[in-house]
């Protein structure tokens, strides 16, 4: 069976800085893969390359067996309809009320009538535990946790086949973080979607992942089921999941 997303030899650099250096990753359909890695290790760049927001210098990305690198125009738009994404800071459109944010993909992408789209938006808001009244508010009036929920509702509104989560729990208190984790697991399961998340929050990774992959120096250095993460036998992974400053991963901190 072809994997849902198949990445081979992905290279991406910005100027002299090599961010992705021959990255390989397979994501099977209806599986939830979490990519862990330190800040600045290129996790967000990976997501943006798959979505076609950034163009890698070399390598191949296939979605359902279809090459998406350098794809553009209508084809790219068609492939992007398969995706939903929850952004790190939610990236809600602050010129639109909450319900229109949630319904955006339906109204603009699928040309649905506004009334029908609003109904679905309110259902999706309910699915993430928000009341219909919230739909009339502007995104600026929401707290961080609520913004995340609205972002999640927007990501699932078009019932996408693949959902990306960019640091879903960053900036939230531990309880709200867990609420979001639960919602992610619930929504992904209900839709039967394939999920790719990036995070450095291990509690979140353990909760939402089927499989975990560790990104280090532009490559996936370890890849396995979530249950095996504690017995990976990989010193880098061990250091990361236990959050030790000492170990093979050296943070680029200059001596004062």
């Amino acid at each position: 069976m072809t994997p849902k997303i198949r990445i081979r030899g992905l290279h991406k650099s910005f100027g002299d800085k090599v961010v992705l250096d021959g990255l390989d990753l397979d994501i099977e359909a209806a599986q939830s893969v979490v990519v862990i890695g330190g800040s600045g290790s290129g996790k967000s760049v990976l997501l943006k390359c798959i979505l076609g927001l950034l163009t890698p210098e070399a390598g191949s990305i296939q979605v359902d067996g279809e090459e998406v690198v350098r794809m553009n125009g209508r084809d790219l738009e068609r492939v992007r309809r398969k995706f939903g994404m929850l952004f790190q800071n939610s990236a809600l459109f602050d010129s639109l009320p909450v319900w229109e944010n949630v319904a955006f993909g339906l109204i603009q992408g699928e040309r649905m009538e506004r009334d029908a789209a609003k109904k679905i938006a309110i259902e999706k808001l309910a699915a993430v535990g928000l009341k219909p009244e919230v739909g009339e508010l502007s995104p600026a009036e929401l707290s961080g946790g609520m913004r995340k929920r609205v972002g999640l509702a927007r990501a699932i509104a078009t019932a996408p086949e693949i959902i990306f989560f960019d640091e879903p729990t960053t900036g939230l208190d531990p309880i709200m973080g867990d609420v979001i984790n639960d919602l992610i697991v619930k929504c992904v399961r209900q839709l039967g979607a394939t999920a790719l998340s990036i995070t450095h929050d291990m509690a979140s990774a353990r909760k939402i992942a089927d499989r975990i992959a560790m990104l280090y120096q532009g490559k996936i250095i370890w890849h396995g089921p979530v249950a095996e993460i504690d017995s990976s036998g990989n010193a880098h992974v061990d250091q990361f999941i236990h959050g030790r400053a000492e170990g093979p991963i050296e943070m680029q901190v200059r001596a004062i």
Binding site: R80, R81, N89, A91, L92, F93, F104, G105
Partner: peptide
Amino acid sequence: AEIGTMRVTEQIDALDTLATNPFKY
């Protein structure tokens, strides 16, 4: 200022992922 803020807060990327071309929108 408006489009620049949308760029730095990833709202333009969000438009793209919602299959809406930012040039058009």
